[in-house]
């Protein structure tokens, strides 16, 4: 049985999806249903005090069906990320966090030094920490040593849709890691998700690829199949790449020879 577990919790789907940037909450609900995902990410932000009219995101997420993974998106220091993680824990009553510490505004690449520091602090406080990291095997190893429950290397910059830019690193990270490897960010379309899984990723996390598609629910369904297909292909063991052709049909018994 091919199960997907993080920190002892088993998930039905290897696809994890976001809740941001959808055209509307009902569109998000349809996409979540079509994706088959059972874990969704959310952000932690200040309540708008002057305008209380806005609907709550949680009105649109069935928490009996979806496990909520709060993130620390937008945090630029370890302290802010730790603070946000603590708030997310109280708002959601789970001790899981998708840990982000951003190091650069234009690329949204992680500040790995601060990320490792924040991971250590939060693991000590009993959090299950899933850090969003560079596709760097050495950093991933340090995160694992710091107690991360999974490592989540980027495939490409957040929201870029560029696909997996450094497949060799993802393969090396998979070989190095004893914890699940989840490719987080950079997926543009279904083949990118399938490719990530074929490289050996244990899961894929995405937001913009679905929320920004012209038909988010259809893309969510495509991603569901892509992640499954990629996983099956990885487990099946692909054929080696060869430079020249090898005939599929018998070369004996040809008419006229």
């Amino acid at each position: 049985m091919d199960t997907f577990s993080i920190a002892g919790k088993t998930f039905a789907s290897r696809l994890i999806i976001g809740t941001g940037k959808y055209p509307s909450h009902p569109v998000m609900v349809k996409a979540h249903e079509a994706s088959g995902a059972d874990m969704v990410t959310v952000a932690v932000r200040r309540v708008n005090i002057s305008d209380r009219s806005k609907e709550s995101l949680l009105d649109y997420i069935d928490t009996s069906k979806y496990f909520i993974l709060p993130n620390t998106a937008g945090c630029y220091t370890a302290d802010d990320a730790v603070r946000t993680a603590r708030l997310g824990r109280e708002a959601g009553l789970s001790h899981w966090v998708k840990l982000e510490v951003i190091g650069d505004e234009r690329t949204l690449f992680p500040d790995n030094e601060a990320l490792i520091e924040a991971t250590r602090v939060l693991v000590r406080e009993g959090f299950v920490v899933l850090p969003y990291t560079s596709d760097d095997p050495v950093v991933c190893r340090k995160l694992e040593d710091a107690g991360a429950a999974a490592v989540m290397p980027l495939g490409a910059p957040i929201g870029s849709g560029l696909g997996i830019q450094n497949p060799n690193n993802i393969r090396i990270i998979r070989e190095f890691s004893r914890v699940p490897v989840i490719v987080d960010a950079g997926v543009g379309t279904a083949s990118d998700a399938a490719f990530a899984m074929e490289l050996g990723a244990d899961g894929v996390l995405m937001n913009t690829a679905i929320a920004g598609a012209q038909d988010p629910a259809a893309m969510a369904e495509a991603m569901k199949f892509a992640v499954r297909a990629g996983r099956l292909a990885y487990l099946a063991g692909r054929i080696p790449r060869k430079l020249y052709a090898t005939a599929s049909s018998p070369i004996e018994g040809l008419v006229g020879r």
Partner: peptide, 10 residues
């Protein structure tokens, strides 16, 4: 005092 809630995010 900081009061926060969940909003859409990735």
């Amino acid at each position: 005092v900081e009061i926060v809630n969940f909003v859409g995010g990735g």
